[in-house]
Amino acid sequence: MNRKHIGNYDYLLIPMILIMGIVIGWPLIQTVIYSFTDAQLLEIQPAQSVGLQNFAKAFQNKGFLNSLRVSGVFAFFVVFSEVLLGTSVALLLNEPLKGVKIVRGLLILPWAVPTIVNAMMWRLIYNPEYGALNSLLYQWGFIEKYVSWLGSANTALGSIIIADVWKNFSLVAMTVLASLQSLPEQQIEAAKIDGANSWQCFFTITLPHILPAIEVATVMRIIEAIKVFDIIQVMTKGGPANKTRSGSIFIYQEAFTNSRIGSGSAYAIIMVALISILIIIYLKIVNRKER
């Protein structure tokens, strides 16, 4: 018998399970229940069950499908850039350069700036009348007249993506850097003595060593990026012409602006299902590593 199993202390879990039940379990069940009704935010008439109608409509609703596409496009570009930039930065800051420690320290700055402050900061930078970006590009002669970065359909999503990359590439960089620093130097030296060049060393030793860290950071960031709400809400509220209306923004508007919590819940459940697939992939990767 395992000596760990002396005594039964299961009751230690009760407070935690109780709170989780109240703030996680119960709301989730309620959302599922709402998704089969035509419930309104302001109860004018009692909610009626509508079966699977909300779900059937969801897949025909162009607005909803478009919002999922926006979330997907946003997540793809944001995560792709963050992983590429973050990994490159980590490799650079792993080199024995003068002042590299200070720059490593700076990486914490974008991570620590609150999401809303980041959104507001970039909103000011992109300001169509007095924004720093317009002023800079104008002074350098790149643009003839000021551009409404967040106000035109072509540039809005891209502008938000840059703002998000600024804040979140640092997390990827710090994760990969930590992984790089746990790489035993003797391994690389041994390979070099055996005659391997820098590129061979990188692809056979360094990259395999940091790949798991990159994997975890990537999936983690995809999950976060698909859920995006805050930065878009502050920068464009989903406009112009719904070009930046992500899944979360769409569902929020459906439930709280249009007061339709029945269909809003159904959309939310569909999103939960999609994200669940990603979470399962994430958990698989983490478990594989622990084994």
Partner: peptide, 19 residues
């Protein structure tokens, strides 16, 4: 379950919470 629910979007909880 804790890790899983941590990663779900808040939009999945907020409607019943609001009510």
């Amino acid at each position: 379950i804790a890790i899983f629910t941590f990663m779900l979007p808040p939009i999945a909880y907020c409607i019943p919470m609001y009510k």
